[in-house]
């Protein structure tokens, strides 16, 4: 299995002070899939993602990425609030990683940025706007374009649809689906959005008590008898979406 997993996590322990957040966690993310991670608020979803991208130190355990060479280890991260650089325009934000990691001529740099803007469903005119002038959905799109600037093989999404209205969230899900089909990256997605889980995730992992309580297709995770997973997927809100039973 090792050669088909994009991220290979074994025995991962992360904690702050006395508190253990991730307790000997094992997880494999397959190459090319969209994995959705669910879990209670404060249960360590974001901690897991931040550990994977290297923002938090791990206590012990092992994290391996596929093709662990210097060149291939490029990943894109979409932060919950977008994390666009407020001093740069949308276009400059997208160009930033390109400018830092590759030497493109200014003309090509503009063309690539415009192409990326168009790929995430924005116009060239939007490229001249500053982050403070963008709506929530547009911010997420620009942030996605920036995360995709270097065509990463691995994309981390932290609550990509939070703060979006259902229509915008649905459109964003569709966008991720489309881009996933053309660019063929692996997606590790932290989400609370049951619709997203249903619509775009190939597999779903449920994080409870610092471990992966259940993982697999949504239908098989639904059958898990872990109490938290039961409560999450069979609660009133999930019932309305027709997930339970």
């Amino acid at each position: 299995m090792a050669d088909t997993s994009a991220i290979h996590i074994r025995d991962l322990v992360v904690g702050f002070g006395e508190k253990i957040i991730l307790d000997h966690l094992d997880l494999d993310v397959n190459e090319g899939e969209i994995l959705g991670l669910v879990g209670a608020s404060g249960g360590g979803k974001s901690v897991l993602m931040r550990t994977l991208v290297g923002l938090l130190p791990k206590r012990s355990g092992q994290i391996d990425f596929a093709g662990d060479s210097d060149d291939e280890r490029r990943w894109g991260v979409l932060f919950q609030q977008g994390a666009l650089f407020s001093a740069l325009t949308a276009r400059q934000n997208i160009q930033f990683p390109l400018r830092e990691c590759a030497r493109l001529s200014p003309g090509l740099l503009d063309e690539i940025a415009d192409a990326k803007l168009e790929m995430v469903g924005l116009t060239r005119e939007d490229g001249d706007k500053y982050p403070s002038e963008l709506s929530g959905g547009m911010t997420k799109r620009v942030a996605l374009a920036r995360a995709l600037a270097l065509d990463p093989s691995l994309l981390f999404l932290d609550e990509p649809t939070s703060g979006l209205d259902p229509i915008a969230a649905g459109e964003f899900d569709a966008l991720i689906r489309t881009l996933h089909r053309t660019l063929r990256f692996t997606v590790f997605m932290v989400t609370h959005d049951l619709n997203s889980l249903q619509a775009i995730c190939d597999r779903v992992a449920a994080l409870a008590d610092g471990r992966i309580a259940a993982i697999g297709r949504l239908s098989s995770v639904l059958k898990s008898d872990h109490p938290w997973v039961q409560a999450y997927f069979h609660g009133a809100r999930a019932q309305k979406l027709g997930l339970g039973n």
Partner: peptide, 11 residues
């Protein structure tokens, strides 16, 4: 092939 390469070919 990535977006940059594809765009150069397209151009």
């Amino acid at each position: 092939l990535d977006t940059v390469g594809a765009w150069l070919l397209e151009r």
